[in-house]
Amino acid sequence: MDRRTFVQTTGAVGAVGLTGLAGCLGDDNGDNGDDFPSESLTWMIPWGEGGGTDTYARQMAPLMEDPLDQSIEIDNREGAGSMLGSEWLVQQDPDGYTFGTVNPPGWSFTWRAQDVDAWEPEDLEPIAYSGVFGYTLIVNDDAAEDAGGIDDFESLRDAYADDEISGFGYQGAGSDSHLTTLLLREEYDLDYDSAVPYDGGGPTMEAVIGGEVAAGFATNTSAVAAEESGEATAIVNLMDIDLDHVFPDIDPITDYGDSLAWITEFYQVQVAPPETPEEEREVLMDAIQEATEHEETQEWEEETGNIVEFGDMDDAADQYVGSVEEIESQVDESIGGFDEFQRLVEEEEDEEE
């Protein structure tokens, strides 16, 4: 079963349970009533500025302010592969004024890989989802030129093997991006000399643009900005989603092995702190829907190739309720389980020392 089928069929019972629980709690905790929202809101992004998640939020937030009649502040809380921001969100008041974005299944993977025990993904309450995005590989143009040209995965692989380029950037130690980096080495023969973790797509993109590393991860969203800089080029699509309309010459990783979509395609899922009443979440959901359907967002989607897609509260829950179990199964099949992932991480750390 592929991931898209999975997210449509898993967690339906959990979604009902979450929504029902929030509805029951609304009488006790939801004192906002018809006046919600009556003050500004905070949208937490668990990654740094400039990455895919941040870019989507900054497109959507101004268009949500009109239906909400309140301003929205973007609060970037990067670190630990999105876990620091997620943990912060879990601890906020359940009044609807603070919400955030998570990106399952990568978010679910990172939670499991880091053995987080203070909270669980299902603790957060679903609001909506607003888009789909995923990973590409970008290369620094100067490094590519010095190596005699790098324009696809094969030439990238050859450049590393021949020590013509150095450094590979990924998005967060212990994260889904880290696992994908290891899979590229173990299963796709990407023999990079060193792998460097950064806190999200924005910092990783900047590291490639600046030549700090020769190549690395970008979301398809931030890869557009990388190309617009004139310093880097998107060369490999790690998703199954076709990006030819944005990057006409991009090389699909499926030409070199099995699909990686289960760990490289993500949903932009908006969630609220535990016990946030359904009434307040519905107000936010409606504003998100209006923003996704706004003509400015539709034009942005066409110009950038970013995939805007609205899903309601139940659809949002379907993306992450039960997703940890699916991730465990996929990791078992692809790399031998989370213990093997941790072994490879430790082995890599030893090589770096």
Rank of each mutant, 00 (worst) to 15 (best):
E278P: 01
E265T: 14
N306R: 10
R281N: 05
E282P: 00
A291P: 00
E302A: 15
G305R: 12
Q298T: 14
E299L: 14
A316C: 06
V308T: 06
W300D: 00
A316L: 01
A291E: 03
G311A: 02
T297E: 08
E301R: 13
S259P: 05
E275S: 13
E290A: 14
T264I: 04
T297F: 10
E280F: 05
S259H: 05
D312S: 05
E295V: 14
L260V: 02
L284K: 00
E296C: 13
F310W: 02
A317Y: 04
T304E: 13
E309S: 05
A291F: 12
V271H: 06
Q319C: 07
Q298S: 13
E265H: 02
D312V: 05
H294S: 12
D318L: 07
L260A: 04
A287N: 00
Y267A: 15
E278N: 00
S259I: 09
P277C: 04
G257S: 11
M313C: 11
I263R: 10
V271S: 09
E278V: 03
E278K: 09
M313L: 15
D318G: 08
R281G: 07
I288C: 01
T292P: 05
M313Q: 14
E278Q: 06
D315L: 01
W300C: 04
V269F: 03
E282N: 08
A272V: 02
E299Q: 15
E280M: 08
E265F: 03
T297I: 06
E279K: 04
F310A: 03
T264E: 02
A261L: 07
W300K: 03
E265S: 15
